[in-house]
């Protein structure tokens, strides 16, 4: 205790030793803030705008969880993490959840002891090249210099792809997206590779986006999703079902515009269960009855979040593709709220 008081006197007052055994959900409620790990800046997914306000697709997931748990979408402390620091930050408890385009893989789930709570974006690793290079397939890239954004599964996928196709390349590993852009635009590398969504986001910031094309090959499966620590199932459930609520809301036609009206006048029992006017789903999670309603009200349903941050109307211009609802031929399929 003395130690923590000393620290408290020296630095931020809010460092009092917390009870170690308490669940993350209780911690978050007691703290009144959700600590959410995001990237250091990838436009469309998580990046601070000119006023320092975090915006983006992953950010919306954080805010939705905060709205569901705390009732306030702004009660989020965004912790920028790099590829190197994100897992330590989560494992050591610095952040409560990580929403940082992180690929769900076996070893991360099993060996690193994390719990992926779903997939909020189905992605795959792609390649971007300047049009003037005249390349139409990744298999033509023999001998090319490839800029890679490090810290995710990209390096491994890339090595596997070139190895499998028996062609050579020269990797240029780069820490941040901004530097990768710089090198790619200056011609220090022929190809830039990262998740296809990231490529689209990056291309959107170029002066002349039309001069660059994304190659058709998608060389990997990258299911990106939020994750939490292993072993805290209550908290994992909260994050998982908040995400599911956003997806289900779209499927059921609940949006931020009509959620208040739907909550009071719906005849659809699943909508009623989702919005807490029927059943006990909220209290089962340890939350208030209108948890999902608050998340949808403030952030919109999955489709709205997608359209606002990365959809075709935005400079990033991603189409729904795999990320359409299962009813529209996509992969989004939320378990039922029952």
């Amino acid at each position: 205790m003395k130690k923590s008081v000393l620290f408290g006197a020296l630095t931020v007052a809010g460092l009092a030793a917390g009870a170690a055994a308490a669940g993350t959900l209780d911690d978050v409620k007691a703290r009144g803030k959700l600590n959410c790990g995001v990237t250091t800046g990838l436009v469309g997914f998580a990046a601070p705008d000119a006023n320092g306000e975090w915006k983006g697709f992953d950010v919306a997931v954080c805010r939705a969880v905060a709205a569901a748990v705390l009732g306030d979408p702004s009660a989020v402390e965004f912790v920028p993490t790099t590829g190197k620091t994100r897992f330590t930050a989560l494992a050591s408890g610095e952040i409560d959840m990580l929403a940082r385009n992180t690929t769900w893989t076996f070893s991360r789930d099993v060996d690193l002891k994390f719990e992926f709570t779903g997939v909020n974006y189905y992605d795959g690793q792609g390649f971007m090249v300047p049009k003037e290079l005249g390349v139409s397939s990744a298999k033509d890239l023999d001998g090319a210099t490839v800029c890679i954004q490090t810290g995710t599964t990209t390096e491994l996928n890339l090595a596997d792809f070139f190895r499998a196709n028996n062609i050579s390349y020269e990797p240029v590993p780069i820490e941040t997206n901004a530097e990768a852009q710089q090198q790619y635009l200056a011609g220090a590398c022929d190809v830039y590779t990262t998740d296809a969504s990231g490529l689209a986001a990056t291309r959107a910031t170029f002066e002349n986006p039309g001069e660059h094309i994304l190659l058709p090959e998608i060389v990997s499966k990258e299911p990106l999703g939020p994750l939490v620590r292993h072993g805290d199932n209550e908290w994992a459930d909260v994050v998982r079902w908040t995400l599911n609520a956003l997806i289900t809301a779209e499927e059921l036609g609940v949006s931020s515009a009509n959620v208040a009206e739907m909550a009071s006048s719906t005849n659809n029992p699943e909508v009623a269960r989702l919005l807490g006017t029927e059943g006990e789903l909220g209290s089962m999670l340890g939350l208030e009855a209108d948890w999902a309603k608050r998340a949808i009200e403030t952030q919109g349903n999955y489709g709205e979040i997608f359209a606002k941050n990365i959809g075709e109307e935005t400079p990033i211009g991603l189409s729904r593709g795999l990320n359409a609802q299962w009813t529209d031929g996509g992969l989004l399929y939320s378990p039922p709220f029952r």
Partner: peptide, 11 residues
């Protein structure tokens, strides 16, 4: 300290 650390998570 970079890629190996990232890929294995063995900080």
């Amino acid at each position: 300290g970079g890629i190996t650390l990232n890929q294995t998570g063995r900080a």
